[in-house]
Simulated scan of single mutants.
Amino acid sequence: MQFETSVGTRDVEIHDVYVAGWTGRDRAAVDHHIAELAAIGVSPPSQVPLYYRVSADLLTQTSTIQVLGTETSGEIEPLVIRSEGEIWLGLASDHTDRALETVSVAASKQICHKPVSTGLWRMAEVEDRLDDLILTCKIRESNAWVTYQSGTLASIRPLSSLIAGIALQDGQAMLCGTLAAVGGVRPAADYRMSLTDPKQTLQLSLDYAVTALPSIT
Rank of each mutant, 00 (worst) to 15 (best):
Q2Y: 13
F3D: 11
R10D: 02
R10Y: 02
D11P: 09
H15D: 15
V17N: 02
G24D: 04
R25A: 13
A28C: 06
V30Y: 01
V30C: 01
D31Q: 12
A35W: 01
I40R: 14
G41D: 12
G41M: 05
Q47M: 12
V48P: 04
Y51C: 04
Y51M: 15
Y51A: 14
D57E: 09
D57F: 07
L59I: 11
T60H: 08
T62F: 05
S63E: 12
Q66S: 13
Q66F: 06
S73H: 14
E75M: 09
E77W: 09
R82C: 12
E84M: 01
W88T: 05
G90Y: 02
D97P: 05
R98C: 01
R98I: 00
L100T: 15
L100P: 05
E101W: 10
T102D: 11
T102R: 15
V103S: 12
S104H: 14
A106S: 15
A107I: 08
S108A: 15
S108F: 10
Q110N: 14
P115Q: 05
S117E: 10
L120A: 06
L120I: 01
W121I: 00
W121C: 00
M123P: 02
V126C: 00
V126N: 01
E127C: 10
D131L: 09
K138H: 13
N143F: 08
A144P: 04
T147R: 13
Y148G: 09
Y148D: 09
S150V: 11
T152G: 15
A154C: 01
I156T: 02
L159Q: 13
S160W: 08
A164W: 08
A167P: 00
Q172K: 03
V182S: 13
V182M: 11
G184D: 11
A188I: 04
A188D: 04
A188R: 03
D190N: 13
D197K: 07
P198S: 05
Q200E: 11
L202Y: 00
Q203V: 06
L204A: 01
L204W: 00
A209E: 05
V210T: 02
P214G: 01
